[in-house]
Design a protein around this nucleic acid. Sequence first.
DNA 1: TGCATATATAAGAGTTTGCTTATACAATGG
DNA 2: CCATTGTATAAGCAAACTCTTATATATGCA
Lengths: 115, 115
Amino acid sequence: MQTDQVLDIETAANLLKVLGDKTRLTMVKIMSEHECCVCEFVDLFDMTQPAISQHLRKLKDSGLVKETRRGHWIFYSLNPNSPYYTFVQHVISDLPSQRYKVEELETQGKRICCD
Amino acid sequence: MQTDQVLDIETAANLLKVLGDKTRLTMVKIMSEHECCVCEFVDLFDMTQPAISQHLRKLKDSGLVKETRRGHWIFYSLNPNSPYYTFVQHVISDLPSQRYKVEELETQGKRICCD
DNA sequence: TGCATATATAAGAGTTTGCTTATACAATGG
DNA sequence: CCATTGTATAAGCAAACTCTTATATATGCA
């Protein structure tokens, strides 16, 4: 994994820019608690699928997030192997839990599960 | 002052957007270690005075930074009364110290001091 | 009072961002 | 192998961002 290392400022600024968007920051907080697939994000945010996809690509390009395909669905989650994993944890630790959103999906029967 | 409170996500995203710029992030790290006036920033960054001024305004508008005038100079520093002070501390704690930059100014006789 | 210095603001140009719609690609099941 | 479903990519547009130059404002001092 990695330890609390010193981050160079330019790298940190780029990460913060990626996180400095309400949609992406919420996604990251959600993924720190659950993995999620694209169509779930589409339901959670009132946004088109391409818009969601583009946000996820930014997160993936930054290395903060990884994807796993299971059948039709691609699940996104925080990448614990990112050298910036603990940095992100620092940043999002003060944010309110977003579990309730995923639970709402669940009660609406919109949660995707591949077991 | 304030405690480790939960930050709403939109507010956090806006703060991160402000911090998600190399110049501003470096400024904030510097100010967490020293107060600085505008002309010092102009020397530290290879940037025009209005560009520096505009970055400082963004930081001030976010409430993260406060200014104190002393004669000709306006000194900027982190605002410990900001409700987001500890959040910012979390974010910048992993960044490398920028003291050496201010020390370079000092050896070049470019440091402003109003004692 | 008038000038020099420090800083802020205004206006404009070039770039980046974040959406939209349209289309392409990938996987599954009949 | 075709249709359906989930996801990604492309192209285009409006808004936001970050710089530049020019100018205004504020303070201290001769």
